[in-house]
């Protein structure tokens, strides 16, 4: 059979028609399929939204974590420097407490014993001459400070910058505590220097004279290792403020 021009023309038009038909058919099918899926939304769009939301959340969480870690590091640094300051302060506090008589201390020194005379007071005599007075304690204590004593206690009442040795009636008061004779004055320091000052005839003349004439007791002895208690009272500071 021979193909003529007419035949080729027919064939070509058939081909075009067929192709268009196939195209239309498959497009129609596609559209139908898409319409069906469209009822539950575009799967890819939904996933995209979730992923974007989750990724945004992740970003925020990571930034939060970074900020938290930075703050933690800063806080740890602060606590470290705080504990360093704490150590320095504790050392300083210990030093101040030691100076303020708030720490029990030990060391060599002397014990001075003062007591009223054991002698019978003759009728008509001045009884004061036979007794130990608060000013006797004061004189001995002041002499002990001059002799370089570092800590002093009278009958276990530690002397402080705020302490007074006072008498109310015939009772001696130290740190608001009543003391009664015999009075034991413990003083930590260089025992030789302390002894020198105490024994020097130009010091405590009046006391030494009453010792000689009326028998009031005044004894000094070295002690290799004295232990003095801490001041147990408080320091009332209501008016003084640091600075000018």
């Amino acid at each position: 059979m021979r193909w003529g021009v007419k035949d080729i023309g027919r064939l070509l038009s058939l081909l075009l028609v067929g192709l268009s038909f196939g195209l239309l058919l498959s497009l129609g099918w596609q559209t139908a399929a898409q319409g069906k899926a469209g009822a539950t939304g575009s799967p890819s769009g939904q996933f995209l939204l979730s992923v974007q939301r989750l990724e945004a959340e992740q970003q925020i969480l990571k930034e939060t974590l970074a900020a938290l870690r930075q703050e933690l590091a800063q806080r740890q640094q602060a606590i470290t420097s705080q504990s360093e300051r704490l150590q320095v302060l504790e050392i300083e506090l210990a030093r101040q407490q030691l100076l303020a008589s708030l720490t029990p201390v030990q060391g060599p020194g002397v014990i001075v014993t003062l007591d009223d005379s054991a002698a019978q007071i003759p009728p008509g005599a001045d009884a004061n001459l036979y007794l130990i007075h608060e000013y006797d304690l004061r004189d001995v204590v002041n002499l002990l400070w001059i002799a370089g004593s570092e800590a002093i206690a009278i009958n276990s009442e530690r002397l402080t910058s705020f302490s007074s040795i006072y008498c109310v009636g015939s009772t001696v008061m130290v740190n608001d505590t009543r003391l009664s004779p015999p009075y034991l004055i413990q003083a930590i320091g260089n025992p030789r220097v302390q002894q020198d000052y105490l024994r020097n005839p130009s010091h405590l003349k009046e006391l030494k004279e009453r010792q000689r004439l009326y028998g009031v007791r005044f004894e000094v002895r070295d002690v290799a290792d004295l232990t003095l208690p801490a001041y147990s009272g408080s320091f009332f500071i209501r008016h003084a403020r640091p600075g000018d």
Partner: peptide, 8 residues
Amino acid sequence: QFAYARPV
């Protein structure tokens, strides 16, 4: 200055 007294 503490030369003789020491804290207990």
